[in-house]
Design a protein around this nucleic acid. Structure first.
Lengths: 205, 205
DNA sequence: TATATACGAAACTCTAAAGTTCCGGATATC
DNA sequence: GATATCCGGAACTTTAGAGTTTCGTATATA
C-alpha cells in the first residue's frame, strides 16, 4: 500500500520553507512588542526588523494575535529551571542566588514585553493563560520550593503564609516595572528580601 | 474704558455650552475604558454611552488622548482623603479600616480602568504621571502616615523599611487585578495585612 | 530541465476609526 | 425677531494598518 498521509499532505516540489527564520521573526515580534505594545505593533515593523517580507510572516502565522501568542509562549523556554534551583542551606542564600544581574535583566525585559500585552489579557483568555505561564508560574513555583525547604529546615515560622509570600517578589517587581516604570536593581530586590519577605516569614537576621 | 478681554474673548451670543454634560462624558469614557481598553475604545462608543453626538465630544476635547487623560486625572477626586484617615490606636486597626467593601470595589474599578491604560504609560509620559497621581500616590501616602504613626507609638520595629512596606499592599492588589485577573476580596487583603505587612513590620500578634 | 514553492519587496484591497462637516431643532443674547 | 452657538445625529473625508496578491529571483524535487 502507498503512503496514506490524509492529514497535511506535504507537497514534494518547490523550495523548502526556511524554518530558521521562525525564531528570528518571533524575536523581532518580542522586540517590537516591548517597544510599542500590542496595538502599536504592526506586522510591517516585525517583518522589517526581521529583514523579511510581510508575506513570509503570514505564510507562517495566520494572524497578528496568533503570532504574538506564539512569541509570548516561546518565552517560557528562558524561564527559571526548577530542577537546577540553588540550594545554599539558607532561605536568604537561595533567594539571593535568584537575583543575579542576568536574571534581573531578563525579568525586566519580559515585563516590558508584558506591558504591551496587559490590555489584551482582559480581552483574550489565551493571552491571560500565556502571561501566567510565562511570567507568574515559573517564578512563583521556584519560590514555593525554596520556601518549603526553609519550612522543612525549621528556618521560617510554621504558620507563614507561603502562598502569599511567593507572590510578594513577583508582584513588587511587576508593580515597579509596569506602573512605576523604574528599573529593577539588585538594591531593590535586596530591600524586598531583607525588608519584607524574610521578616514576614519569621526569619531572624 | 471698556472691558479688555484680550485672552479668550468669550462670544456673547448663542446657546451656552451645557457643562453638566462634561462629567457624564468623562464617566462614560472611564466605563468604556474599563471594558475595552484604550485602543479598543472609540469616541463613538463614548458618545453613545453618554447619549451625546461625536461633535459634542470634540467640541470639548481636541483629541482622544486628551479626553482620556482628563478622565483619568478626574479619578483623583475619589481618592483616599488624607485628612480623614482612620486613627484606631493600632496599625492593624487603621489598615483594616482602609479595606472596607466600598473602598475595595473602588480600587478594583480604578485598576480595571488602568488595565486599559498600562500600554499607554510606556508610550506617553503624561499617562504615566496621571496613573501615579491617581493610583499610587494617594494609597501610598495614606499608608505612609499610618506607618509613621505606628513607628512613633513604638508599635513597629524602628528599622522597618516603611517606604517598601507602603507599596506592598498596592503592588499585591495591582498584581492580582492586572495580571492574575482575580477579584480583590476582603480575605485577600486580610491575608496580606496579617500574613505579610504586619509580620514584616515587626508587629507581634 | 520543467515545475512548484519559498524568498524579499512592493503594490494592492478592505475595513475601522479619528476627526470634520452638515443637518434640523433648541436656546441664548441683543 | 435676527443672529449665533449649542444640541444629537448622521454623512462625510482621511488615514493607518490587517491581510492578499504580484513580481522577480532563488532553491528544491522529479
Amino acid at each position: 500500500m502507498t503512503q496514506s498521509k490524509l492529514v497535511d499532505p506535504k507537497p514534494k516540489l518547490g523550495r523548502k520553507r526556511d524554518h530558521t527564520r521562525d525564531a528570528e521573526i518571533l524575536e523581532a515580534t518580542l522586540d517590537v512588542l516591548a517597544e510599542t505594545g500590542y496595538d502599536g505593533m504592526t506586522i510591517e515593523m516585525v517583518a522589517a526588523r526581521a529583514r523579511a517580507g510581510k508575506a513570509t510572516v503570514y505564510r507562517r502565522w495566520p494572524s497578528k494575535p496568533e503570532l504574538v501568542l506564539d512569541a509570548v509562549a516561546g518565552m517560557k523556554a528562558t524561564a527559571v529551571d526548577l530542577d537546577a534551583l540553588p540550594d545554599t542551606g539558607t532561605l536568604r542564600g537561595d533567594l539571593l542566588a535568584l537575583i543575579k544581574a542576568p536574571t534581573l535583566r531578563e525579568s525586566e525585559h519580559k515585563l516590558k514585553i508584558m506591558t504591551g500585552i496587559i490590555s489584551m489579557i482582559a480581552r483574550n483568555p489565551e493571552f491571560a493563560a500565556a502571561t501566567r505561564a510565562v511570567l507568574v508560574e515559573p517564578r512563583v513555583s521556584a519560590n514555593r520550593i525554596l520556601f518549603r525547604r526553609a519550612l522543612d529546615r525549621g528556618e521560617i515560622s510554621p504558620d507563614a503564609d507561603i502562598d502569599r509570600l511567593c507572590m510578594v517578589g513577583p508582584a513588587m517587581v511587576a508593580f515597579r516595572v509596569l506602573v512605576l516604570q523604574q528599573p529593577v536593581t539588585r538594591e531593590f530586590m535586596l530591600s524586598i528580601i531583607d525588608g519584607i519577605v524574610l521578616p514576614a516569614a519569621g526569619v531572624r537576621p
